[in-house]
């Protein structure tokens, strides 16, 4: 990489994590939530998403490229830190460590999830309620999916907190404390939405 470009890569990394990847995450979890209204509802919603015009471009530029840039650059960031929770057991230091741990786990989960659904769809499989029902019938996969969704929502919510710091929006300790509570709320709400959708397939 060119010299003195790190700052811009880091800013791009922070931005893409929220726009578009974070927005897509929220949208995805909300569409999944149709599953709680029964198979028909979910299949209809999935059908609408599948039938969006210019779908492949939307997928490439709004999902895959930003997601994998964020993920791979994030792995680089995660492995250039030296965690020290024993010396500094503070809340923020734990969040710092968890952000990196959930980032790596989310990358594994999302990659597996894309392989199991989107890539299989490209190979001719039908993505519908039955597909998810079959995947989640395995208790190991059910646990993996729940862990994956919670890891993703945590990474997003806590990432939103540091996004606000990185972009200079929350400066004072007070505003950063309030945004901690706000993002904690986002984590809880998105986790409930995500887990309810998963359990609807069981």
């Amino acid at each position: 990489m060119a010299k003195d470009r790190e700052f811009y890569w880091r800013r791009l990394h922070s931005l893409l994590g929220v726009i578009p990847v974070g927005i897509f995450l929220i949208q995805h979890l909300i569409v999944n939530h149709y599953a709680t209204r029964g198979p028909e509802s979910f299949n209809n919603a999935a059908h609408v998403m599948e039938g969006l015009p210019f779908r492949i471009f939307l997928e490439i530029f709004i999902i895959f490229l930003p997601l994998y840039f964020h993920a791979l650059y994030g792995v680089y960031i995660a492995f250039t830190s030296r965690n020290n929770p024993r010396q500094f057991g503070t809340f923020r230091n734990w969040m710092f460590i968890l952000q990196r741990a959930t980032g790596v786990f989310t990358l594994i989960f999302v990659t597996w999830h894309i392989w199991e659904t989107r890539i299989q769809a490209a190979l001719g499989a039908t993505v519908d309620f039955n597909m998810m029902e079959a995947i989640l019938a395995d208790p190991f996969m059910l646990a993996f999916y729940i862990a994956g969704v919670v890891s993703t929502t945590f990474h997003f919510a806590n990432g939103l907190w540091s996004f606000l710091v990185t972009w200079g929006i929350t400066i004072s300790p007070r505003s950063q404390r309030i945004s901690t509570y706000a993002t904690l709320g986002i984590f809880v709400v998105l986790s409930i939405i995500g887990i309810r959708a998963i359990l609807a397939f069981v």
């Binding site: 790190e6 700052f7 503070t90 923020r92």
Partner: peptide, 15 residues
Amino acid sequence: LMGDGGLGDCGNSQN
């Protein structure tokens, strides 16, 4: 500060 090794490398651990 926007050069390599500068402000961009902060990870907000707040230690």
